[in-house]
Design a protein around this nucleic acid. Structure first.
Lengths: 153, 153
DNA sequence: TCTCCTAAGTTCATCCAGCGAACTACATAG
DNA sequence: CTATGTAGTTCGCTGGATGAACTTAGGAGA
């Protein structure tokens, strides 16, 4: 049987899971953010099986996170560039970065950090509520239908 | 061959990918945040194959996101509860929620929203830099070794 | 006592997806 | 005419997801 698809479930987490649940996909996006554009660049950087990479890139183009842009004719060659949708995906990678940094290393934390190219300073991603600026805690949230907003029980 | 493991790569995104790349795992965590604790609760809510659920719960316990707590003897039964590490993972789910809400629906957006249990108001997760409070853009960031911080080229 | 029920898994056969290596296609460089 | 570069595709193998059935251990009801 085919792996259960989540991309039509009525939950944003489920639909996003359908993407990031493809093995290698977050890493392909990471590489796109670090400037890689061509098949061979991705392949050499990640050592990902070529067949898998081809499928991932195809899907990311289908989903609109990347777009194919020709960079030569004879033979026709395309590179993969981030779209707005793809750039927005950085937030997901940043949250993964932060959680991984905080919880998946012992002692001194990971050997790498995120650096702002303009200030040269370390960046520490944090997830907050856009309205209040407060840090989120899953405990105090629930998922509800749109009509439920503002209705205190 | 076994699927390539990322859990020892020197990059927080890679290590986190190793977790969320397991099919169903983010959804299991989502259910944990919505209060589910027992095997049958998770299984009924998600319709996940039982063998897969058992493996996911085992791994999440191994990785320290969930812990097994006995809730009865005769026969011995355990429930799965979030640890601090697991609660911190909410940030990753929140970022996925936001990106999915913004980019994986047409028209009116998804039929569901996140609601703060105390205020009853909608919550919109946003990823910012902890130091500056500014929204992040992947373009202006690079990953570097720890020694590189503050060193402007 | 016998049977049904619940909870938390385990086992099984099937089939899809990831794996590494080799191969192909097309153009240019020497 | 051969070598090189780029972007894939094909192939044989095997791990992992799938749904259904089975197991284990006890409790409840007739």
């Amino acid at each position: 049987m085919r792996r259960t698809r989540f991309d039509r479930w009525p939950c944003p987490i489920a639909r996003t899971t359908d993407l990031v649940g493809d093995w290698w996909t977050p890493l392909v996006m990471r590489e796109a953010f670090s400037g890689r554009r061509r098949f061979e660049d991705f392949q050499r950087a990640l050592k990902v099986p070529r067949a898998v990479l081809a499928r991932r890139l195809d899907r990311l183009v289908d989903e609109g996170l990347l777009k194919k842009v020709p960079y030569q004719e004879h033979p026709p060659r395309y590179e993969y560039r981030l779209t707005d949708k793809g750039r927005a995906f950085w937030d997901v990678l940043a949250a993964m970065w932060r959680w991984g940094s905080d919880w998946l290393w012992g002692e001194n934390g990971p050997p790498v950090i995120l650096i702002d190219n303009e200030t040269g300073r370390e960046v520490r991603p944090l997830v907050v509520d856009q309205n209040t600026g407060n840090r989120l805690t899953g405990r105090r949230l629930r998922m509800g239908r749109k009509q439920d907003v503002g209705v205190l029980s």
